[in-house]
Simulated assay, not measured.
Amino acid sequence: MAQDVKSGVSGSQSDSLFEPNILKRYSFDKVFAIATWVATFFGLTILAILLFDVFSDGLPRLSWSFLTSFPSRRPSAAGILSPLVGSIWLLVTVAMIAFPLGVGAGIFLEEYAKDNWFTQLIEINIANLAAVPSIIYGLLGLQIFVRWMEPITQGRSILTGALTLSLLILPVIIISTREALRAVPDSLRQAGFALGATRWQVISQQIFPLALPAILTGTILALSRAIGETASLITIGALTYIAFLPDLSPKGLQSPFTALPIQIFNWVSRPQEEFQINAAAGIIVLMMVLILMNSTAILLRNKFQSKR
């Protein structure tokens, strides 16, 4: 009985000793939570204001003629046909180049490469390259693909832009692929090896199908970044005015090109208000393309997850 009284007294003393610290900590947590809510609300408010301004200016300009007309010096007759087709060409070509290279590199580094100083050096460089500004990739593409590989790429062409943007998003695809493979339990690998399967059979038939939804999501998000890049395309010399469409053949990859971000940048730099309205309409079209790509990522992820 006496021990219970002593323990009760000591417990009340400890509670009174730690109560100020607990109250102080909880009050700090409340302040931090309020600050994060304020920051979030401020960012969403600014975004809403920008979207309202863009849509109020650009929606009246959107029409079928705007989508099917070439750029023009007359703002009332200007359209985005060649930039839109150029962006689609870039998107398809970048996907064909970056997806197999990035996924293959991610599988090799995660499943095959041994942990030594060389692979650690590669991993550090990949992580650093993911944070390099896009204009640096533009300078690299200008030197390698425009100047050194001019007989192959024909200088400032769709192929040059696609190769430059592929370098830009390769680190992101490699990192997302490795993270998706790490999320698959090791027990599946051990079970496959125990049944006598080779490493490639385990990866191709068990690991890769389970990691594919996350890989596709990361790849499409990386492509979404590529389609909105401007600095790297300006650096390699993408044109701001093209009144023709590239050939729908392999030779079309060597044609000059423009893209939606380049055309929007060109219109924004004009002093006439009509070109500013055209730029707002172009921004809406670019946003619709990005939303379509992100929706595709969600649908593909849900489709492959349902097959598990």
Results as ranks from 00 to 15, higher is better:
Val9Ser: 12
Asn21Leu: 10
Lys24Cys: 03
Lys24Asp: 03
Val31Trp: 15
Ile34Phe: 15
Val54Pro: 11
Asp57Glu: 08
Ser63Gly: 09
Ser69Lys: 11
Pro75Gly: 00
Ser76Met: 12
Ser76Gln: 15
Val85Gly: 14
Gly86Ile: 15
Ile88Pro: 03
Val92Cys: 04
Ala95Ile: 07
Met96Trp: 02
Phe99Gly: 03
Leu109Asn: 03
Lys114Met: 02
Trp117Ile: 13
Ile135Ser: 03
Leu139His: 07
Gly141Leu: 01
Leu142Cys: 07
Ile144Gln: 00
Phe145Ser: 07
Arg147Lys: 06
Gly155His: 09
Ile158Ser: 05
Thr160Met: 02
Ala162Gln: 03
Leu165Ala: 13
Leu168Phe: 10
Ile174Gly: 01
Ile175Ala: 05
Arg182Phe: 04
Leu188Met: 10
Leu188Trp: 08
Phe193Thr: 04
Phe193Asn: 05
Ala194Leu: 02
Leu195Val: 09
Arg199Trp: 00
Arg199Ile: 00
Trp200Phe: 12
Gln205Leu: 04
Phe208Trp: 01
Leu210Pro: 00
Leu216Ser: 08
Thr219Met: 14
Ile220His: 09
Leu221Ala: 04
Gly228His: 11
Gly228Tyr: 01
Gly228Arg: 02
Glu229Lys: 10
Phe244Met: 02
Ser249Phe: 07
Ala281Cys: 12
Ala281Tyr: 04
Gly282Leu: 10
Ile284Val: 09
Met288Asn: 01
Val289Leu: 15
Ser295Tyr: 08
Gln305Ala: 05
